[in-house]
Amino acid sequence: MPLMRHSNEVREMAGELGKYKLCVSARSADKAILKRAQDGGIVTQLFKFALEEGIIEGAIVAGPGDEPWRPRPFIATTVEELMSASGTKYNISPQVSWIKEATRSYGLDKIGIVGTPCQMQAVRKGQLYPVGLRDVPDKIKLAIGIFCMENFSYQSVKQLVEDHAAMKMEAVKKMEIGKGKFWVYGQRGQVVQLPLKVTHKYEQPGCHVCLDYVANLADVSTGSVGSPDGWSTVFVRTRNGDDIWSKAIAAGCFETKPIEQVKPGLELVTKLATEKITKNQKTVEERAKFGVNKSLRNPYLGPK
């Protein structure tokens, strides 16, 4: 019996951008959402539509936690709760930890979840191999993935902001990775840009074996890369995602532009995806000969 396929073989199978039915540049048609949005307000808008239409009864989002910019996963069942979670936090929010509770004490039959590519992988693994997720697999009704080069621990973000950018965490208005820089915007209007090479040491180690940049396994995935400021690139991937997206478009939730007509467009997305996957593929290979005749684990080859 063959073992699992080698991961670069897999990459060739799916392509860097994964399978998708549709790719556009889009932004929410709702000014209130755009005002608080990281980019085009795609996640908030799509969940809002799904909630209002009864496609989902609640969504697992990353809301404000105990400390400034520390996210806490929670289940939003109202538009107000959804809005409170908008914006990217750039550190870990264990979204999947709520996926079963949503079906238990929250009593949800139709769940939305937003997360990074690895979290989308966790969700799909959980649907096909629900080891400890009884009665969860058929209740995931909308999984939105966000593009992700890597994630950070809270302490990492704190050091980037407080040491490198010389700003207090609670004084930060927005953080962003784009145009090859880590941007920190202060409440008082100051803007600090850090070169990405500064951020590298702070990256979460587990991200270095990740072979997915654009959340290939989401129903709909989105991120700023590829689209102009204030817009987001959107991949509609699954039949289910396509269904919801079309309804949202028909309802006038989004303004869209063909991805071919925007700058920098898919070329940049492909470039970054290729860079990430190539680099991390190399890491996976290096791990195989990390010690002296000793390997580090490769999850893509099995659980041993």
């Binding site: 004490s105 929250y106 009593g107």
Partner: peptide, 12 residues
């Protein structure tokens, strides 16, 4: 550990 929400109550 967890209280059931109003939504969960309705479902039950």
């Amino acid at each position: 550990y967890k209280a059931c929400t109003a939504h969960a109550k309705t479902k039950m």
